[in-house]
Amino acid sequence: MQNITPNHRLNDKKKLRPKNLNLFTIRLPINAVVSILHRASGVGLFLVLPLILLAFQASVDSPSSYLLLTKLLSAWYVKLFLIGLSWAFFHHFFAGIRHLLQDIHWMTSLQKARFSSRVVLWLVGIAVIVFAWFIWP
């Protein structure tokens, strides 16, 4: 029982620990990068939900609204936005699958988790390029 630290000593130790919360000097490990981007892309996807619903509604509502939507979607700046959106989707999708696999204890060692992070980033990059290739013409 003698190695239990009294509470006040624990607090003192906590105060002495170096702390760095400067976002410009923190270098996140690749696992953390994939994780925080999963969160950021999720928030992004949540924020564009009304646009997605609006676009879906326009696509099925009538031939004229469908035509209007296709015209809108063919503008280059809208396509750029769609490519950005596709990044959010693909990152959330692939990083999410990685998290699900980790939930069932697949590839959870540090080394394997780093490897799967790299795989996720590559898959996202390839998927976004394929998507851009698909919609640009």
Binding site: R39, G42, V43, L45, F46, L49
Partner: peptide
């Protein structure tokens, strides 16, 4: 499912 998922995720954030 999307709305349920978003609700849980945004609540965490």
């Amino acid at each position: 499912c999307l709305f349920m998922h978003a609700w849980l995720g945004v609540a965490d954030v």
